[in-house]
Amino acid sequence: MLKRVFSYAFLTIAAIISFFPFLWMIISSTNKSVDVTKGRLLPGSYFLENLSNLLETVDLVPALMNSAKISITTTILSLLIASLAGYGFEIYQSKAKDMVFNFLLLSMMIPFAALMVPLFRMFGSISQTAPFIGIDTFAAVILPTVTTAFLIFFFRQSTKMFPKDILEAGRIDGLTEIGCFFRIYVPTMKTTYSAAAIITFMASWNSYLWPLVVLQSPENQTIPLLISVLGSSYSPDFGVIMTAIVIATLPAAFIFFIMQKQFVAGMMGSVK
């Protein structure tokens, strides 16, 4: 009985601590900055005013559009590249390909902090010949992060469960190898694709360090960059900042709630 009470008490406290910052963020977005600093914990009626102040002070909508463009492109390309590779490594398995696979996995050990400087210089020199994929372009944000060994690994693991016999059936029906991939594999692996899509989209939507390094002009700003700038201002308007964070967090939170299962499945993919 005592154990019971302890369980509930501990979990309730943990849940409250986990949820409180969200609650504070949402409440603060409806209050005036002065009230936020006074520690007001009741919902106010200033949300619309905060929102219009926010839209006046920063380019919120362009930043949302930039983030959306980058994240959607990254997600589509990542899924295509990684699933082709994961499928290739598993279906056309050979000793040489397994060696390549293990070599690619080594890239998971490389921290991004170590890549940032050489990548910056690489895109700096590309800028001189091909400015459209050089520094301060979306292509420069997307290209280095679009292929991850983790996602290839994830697709390869999932392909192990894929019934290979139906590929044979497809070949007999006259499908080419690439046809088998697009007509049979992709439709069968919908759950794997949606798990991978969530993980990739979230990572891209929230990424900060590389865009900070490579995107220099204000009109290319993404949402995390915008929030970071707002958060470091000397005279912060708390209501406005919290409104921005609420808007930036909403897409991720929304996706999480409708696709919680796939999200967890995607996380688990790294353990298998």
């Binding site: 979990l11 943990a14 849940a15 409250i16 986990s18 949820f19 910052p21 969200f22 504070w24 963020m25 979230m202 939507w205 929230n206 900060y208 949402i223 995390p224 929030i227 970071s228 707002l230 958060g231 900042i241 919290m242 964070i245 930036a248 967090t249 991720a252 939170a253 999480f256 919680q260």
Partner: peptide, 17 residues
């Protein structure tokens, strides 16, 4: 769900909070 919820926030957003 409550305890897992912090994982959906972006690192920048929760840091500012």
């Amino acid at each position: 769900t409550a305890i897992f919820l912090p994982c959906v926030t972006s690192l920048v957003a929760y840091s500012v909070i």
